[in-house]
């Protein structure tokens, strides 16, 4: 599903001394099936931006069009929008409330009016996606689980709604590396299988580099830069100027290239770097 954002402006606490212009004249175009990375330093307006896409925040100015429908119009049914656009908040485990894991994950599907058989399927599938053993955990209280497991339950709660657009706000902050890789791997598979549109907010340039097709860089409430992942990470100077960076491996390849070693600069993963370096070494041997 495509998303178009036009001239979006959002001001918190307008007219009070705590006024913050969180978003200023933001224009974004996201095509159906894209995997977008949204980066920007703390307070640049990322969370504010994504909350507009499922209608949780209303713009002070501008339009948000999801699949041809302007969701800022008054007559739009919000449940319809939220069925299409799933949003996983920062620290989603704080929203758990049900007695059992099963019921908590079923909350979303129930709200959009699915029957119990379909709900059952969805809960199973969602728990499977986030690698939670269904039989073992379904009757447990979510509050007895570890922080990482709670996070998975919360993410499963949104995945169970099968949204066409999935937005994840730092879904793996505070998880161990293994947990982080598992969740991202599942999200990648999900994207491959359903070709859904995904927006991922993250401070980890490595994860962004590994997963996304395109990046949107936010800075002080404005879009500073957008483009294909590789192209954006080529602009390491500009990213560093606003307190961001490029993946470690990209940086390393850049340094090597500076030393006149004929290697490509736009390498994003260790895997690709290995291939590139081996290619160069073999070339040297043959010469």
């Amino acid at each position: 599903m495509s998303i178009t954002i036009e001239n979006l402006t959002h001001i918190y606490n307008e007219g009070s001394p705590y006024q913050t212009n969180a978003l200023e004249d933001v224009n974004i175009e996201i095509k159906s099936g894209e995997f977008i990375g949204l980066i920007g330093h703390t307070g640049s307006g990322k969370s504010t931006l994504i909350q507009h896409i499922n209608g949780l925040l209303k713009p002070d100015k501008g339009k948000i069009i999801v699949e041809g429908m302007d969701i800022t119009r008054k007559d739009v049914k919000m449940t319809q929008v939220r069925k299409k656009v799933g949003l996983v908040f920062q620290y989603p485990e704080h929203q758990l409330f049900e007695e059992t894991v099963y019921k908590d994950i079923a909350f979303g599907p129930k709200n959009v009016g699915l029957d119990s058989e379909e709900i059952d399927n969805r809960v199973k599938e969602a728990m499977n996606l986030v690698k939670l053993p269904f039989e073992e955990l379904k009757e447990r209280s979510p509050f007895e689980l570890s922080g990482g497991q709670q996070r998975r339950v919360a993410i499963a709660g949104v995945l169970a709604m099968k949204p066409d657009i999935l937005i994840l706000d730092e879904p793996t902050a505070g998880l161990d590396p293994r947990g982080r890789d598992e969740i991202f791997e599942q999200i990648r598979l999900l994207h491959q299988k359903y070709k859904n549109t995904i927006i991922l907010v993250s401070h980890s340039m490595e994860d962004i580099a590994k997963l996304t097709d395109r990046i949107i860089v936010m800075h002080e409430g404005k879009v500073l830069l957008t483009g294909e992942t590789k192209a954006v990470f080529r602009e390491s100077k500009r990213l560093e100027a606003i307190g961001l960076g490029v993946p470690q491996i990209t940086k390393l390849m850049g340094i090597l290239a500076d030393k006149n070693i004929p290697l490509a600069r736009d390498i994003l993963t260790v895997e690709d770097a290995k291939i590139e370096i081996l290619k160069w070494l073999r070339g040297k041997k043959n010469a």
């Binding site: 449940t79 069925k83 908040f89 704080h94 929203q95 909350f107 709200n111 709660g157």
Partner: peptide
């Protein structure tokens, strides 16, 4: 506000 939004995102009314 935050929790309300999170539950609304899951279709709560």
């Amino acid at each position: 506000d935050k929790i309300m939004k999170a539950q609304m995102a899951r279709g709560a009314d």
